[in-house]
Amino acid sequence: MPVETWLIFVISFMILGSIVALELKDLLSSIIAIGIVGLGVSVSFLFLQAPDLAIVQFLFEIFALIILVRAFIKKDYHQEKPSRVNKILVGVTIITLIAVFFLSVNIFKSLPAFGNPLMETSEYYLAHGAKDTGSANLVTSIILDYRAYDTLGEITVLFTAILGALTIVRIKSRSKDSVEEQL
């Protein structure tokens, strides 16, 4: 079967999985169901000839599952409470999103067709990458040589996000300590 058929199958499965994950009432089940989408993306990366990305996406999925389950499993209210769902908001949102979808069809028609990318910059990287950087894996040669400053900036963003998460979690423990000291 051609790659496009496989991709249509996998992405349709991912859309179904994401709708199920969003509509399930039990939050733990929806966290598990979101794994369908992540692992589907991983399989799609394999079909699209990106093995590095498939491995990274797989690891991301496992770590995200661990973080989400670890953070939310101890909470008593892990059942979503039946709340008065604003039906008008849901209806208007669905109609608007369907309109956005049909209006955007022309944009996707104007893009280069699937399987024929514009490879103006990448042709240079592919032709000269091994000679310039000495790396057999051309993705690595782009990350660590041609676009090293981009990678530095992205690592800074990652560092800031982790620092922010640690700070937010740490405020709790420090305030608890101070309360205990006051007591």
Partner: peptide
Amino acid sequence: MVDPLPQALVLTSIVIELGITAMLVALAVR
């Protein structure tokens, strides 16, 4: 060969997404 440039950029983007998810989860827990 397929285009290596999007692969290189998405590789770091996935890792950043993990950091952002961790930060959002910390905010939600607080």
